[in-house]
Design a protein around this nucleic acid. Structure first.
Lengths: 329, 329
DNA sequence: ATGAAAGCGCTAACAT
DNA sequence: ATGTTAGCGCTTTCAT
């Protein structure tokens, strides 16, 4: 691979001049510019970003660490991030922690070692990863979930309000024994959505009794939790499921057990599913502004890189109920 | 941020010794090892990977460039790649070209500049990106789609056979006027799946007449193509759709036009959809071994990094028909 | 077993 | 406007 010195020799100039040309300095003679560009083309020269990054002690790469690449919520969010990043001159590298704290720590370590310009993270709950990030000078934005003990810029949706709306919706439809399937304790989305659910129940006269199943945020977890609820002595007549993949699992479980939805079991899920309207019965969900969430996070990161000091912002975006068939009665 | 020299000073040794300790050389006195590790911990030292990469002129990062992060086919494949990569000591950074050749070129350029250890790419069709990769010394594996004019390691499924099987399945079910919705010309999956479709038709007595709509591989494209077919004078009674997102679009279009599936229109899609069995009617698809495809691609890349020379391999994996309701008659 | 020193490829003072 | 030079942080000969 040719280096900048090969180009300099070929063009009969110094390496500094080549560097200036390539970095758009306008204090270079047009004739030199032409010679340099010709040499670059002839040699097929491509600047070594590693050397450049070392010298500049900064990069133009963002690490976006998400907790499940199979979850459409995250992939939609990434689209929003990418669009802003590209416009601001950054490239996005995506890291999939797969809800595994160990993997998350590996990716955080890589992002720090590689001197990435910034990190956007949907925490899988690793306190160690969070600490590494907070102890480092690297700008961080948390999305979807609060970073453990993290005083950082954050973009989330109003999980509690969304969950309360979803649960009220089931109550209004006439369901009386409403269960909740939520995610791991300590993951903010799991806890806040649960809180919204219990809040809605306690507003009733008489207050509804919570019936809660905790599992991971995966499809299989939703399946298993639903199966447990079905065979419980106080079998519910409706369920609020706190994320999209678990909702899919719950639906599959209900189909396998031939439980009619919404007749025998009303269902509302949190997070939109791309094909929620094609499923029969179509699925009532609490939709989040995923793309906008990504854009907002990226904007915060751009600002934070420009202004490392300053108080962290928390942006809360609204979530919105999309009533469809699965919650009708 | 502390450097290796700060650690050396703190531990009372040379930077070379610190480097040896951190890189697992066993020619270091255990007492020194202990002192170095203490110093590392106390200073919160983290090696600068950029400097290391420059010095070693290699990295441990793979770029995986996929053409649509919203497509479950790719995200499932990425999982397979990641598992092998991690085991082999590489980190995967995912780049989403979004079926946009310009974005693809940007990411290829970044991968080359950043001296990534290898690239796995599902080409969006950019000849320029392909040329950059082939002209460079970086090891490359193409997945899903042939790299334009690319003599590189490749992992694909047997697109033609899968498409033929799907089309025959519709013929066997009694459909007589079968259309095909496929992707852009020049994208190998689009062309080969079309070829399988026409092959199945021409095996008939008398040969069936092809009815082809070309569009992009996106959901909206599938919707529009289906709408065009519906209003065509020779309206088909079945359709073979050459990828999953377009199939979703086609289904939505059929739902909007209140065309009964499979009664008025049989549907088979290529690529599995995560919730194909939850949709009503459940969807007949040609399923690909996505995870295995990812693993295979990663293994080829590991081998290629170890042995840069040598003839490129092409691995063809089987695709398998999953008959469900949408193609019954 | 350890240290001194060179150099990976680039950019940015500084000098001219 | 251009060139000279130092050095980003690390690894790896080469000497000892």
């Amino acid at each position: 691979m040719p280096t900048i010195y090969d180009v300099a020799r070929e063009a009969g100039v110094s390496a500094a001049t080549v560097s200036r040309v390539l970095n758009g300095a306008r204090t270079v003679d047009p004739a030199m510019v032409a010679r340099v560009l010709t040499a670059v083309r002839e040699l097929g020269y491509r600047p070594n970003a590693v050397a450049r990054n070392l010298r500049r002690s900064r990069t133009t790469l963002w690490a976006v660490i998400i907790s499940d690449i199979g979850n459409p919520f995250f992939t939609a969010t990434v689209r929003g991030i990418e669009d802003v990043a590209q416009q601001a001159g950054y490239s996005v590298v995506l890291c999939n922690s797969d809800e595994d704290p160990a993997k998350e720590e590996t990716y955080v370590a890589a992002a720090l070692s590689e001197q990435m310009a910034g990190v956007i993270i949907a925490s899988s709950g690793s306190a160690k990863a969070a600490k590494s990030l907070l102890d480092s000078p690297i700008p961080v934005v948390a999305i979807d979930r609060q970073l453990p003990r993290g005083e950082v810029d954050t973009v989330v949706v109003d999980n509690e309000a969304g969950a309360r709306t979803a649960t009220r919706h089931l109550l209004d439809a006439g369901y009386r024994r409403i269960a909740c399937v939520t995610g791991p304790e300590g993951v903010s989305t799991a806890d806040l959505r649960l809180r919204g659910y219990t809040a809605a129940l306690s507003e009733q006269q008489p207050p509804g009794e919570p019936l809660v199943a905790r599992t991971d945020f995966r499809e299989q977890g939703g399946y298993d939790a639903m199966a447990a609820l079905l065979s419980s002595p106080e079998r519910p007549d409706a369920v609020f499921v706190a994320n999209n993949l678990m909702t899919v699992g719950a639906l599959r479980c209900l189909a396998d057990h031939e439980v009619r939805v919404p007749g025998e079991m009303g269902v509302v899920g949190f997070d939109e599913i791309p094909w929620a309207d094609l499923v029969r019965p179509s699925l009532t969900t609490v939709a989040q502004p995923t793309y906008e969430l990504g854009r907002m996070a990226a904007r915060l990161l751009v600002d934070r890189i420009a202004t490392p000091a300053g108080r962290p912002a928390t942006v809360v975006l609204p979530a919105e109920l999309r009533a469809r068939q699965s919650s009708a009665r």
